[in-house]
Amino acid sequence: MTELIKMVVVLVLLSSSSGGLLHWLKTQTSSKIEDQQVKFVKGPALKSIFEGSSNDPTADRFTLKVGETEKNFFVGKFDGKTNCVAFEGFGKGGYGGDIGLMIGVDIDNGSVLGAAVTTHSETPGLGAKAKEDPSFVSQLKGLSIESPILVTNDGGKINAMSGATITSRAVCNAANDAGKIYKEIKSQLTEKVKSF
């Protein structure tokens, strides 16, 4: 009996102290980790979208609540005017799961400034080109974020990548997801961006 109690006590003490330690470490590092994620995952995408901007979009960011979740928004300044914002939409139906698409929007007229794939697990050489070869996502440039974006097969304007129609559709889904977010919080977004 004493042996049993000893086993329970040791295990409980060990697990709870390790839980406590990890919680403390997690709270200590969480902001640092977020900075790193923004810098290394979103950074390259933001750079290509906001090419020639006068600020550092990874630093000028804010969060807004969209539905239940907090989302990151990145501000781009051009010629002293702050009218561009970039955020991430997620497209269902990729070949290997959801596709994350960072999309930059001009809030004056709602047109797409540029886009870049951030996260995906598509086939290397085919679907993965959506990230590596910027010519596909550059088709989004100038389109209105508020109207549906579709591939030509579905009656839209986007030429699908050859051999990767599924991925191309998923990228469009991601753009439409971004459009949905944009419509939902447009007024708050405009206000926030202007304050930078």
Partner: peptide
Amino acid sequence: ELLMQAFAYP
């Protein structure tokens, strides 16, 4: 894992 995420993300 946490330290690596915070200081050596790549």
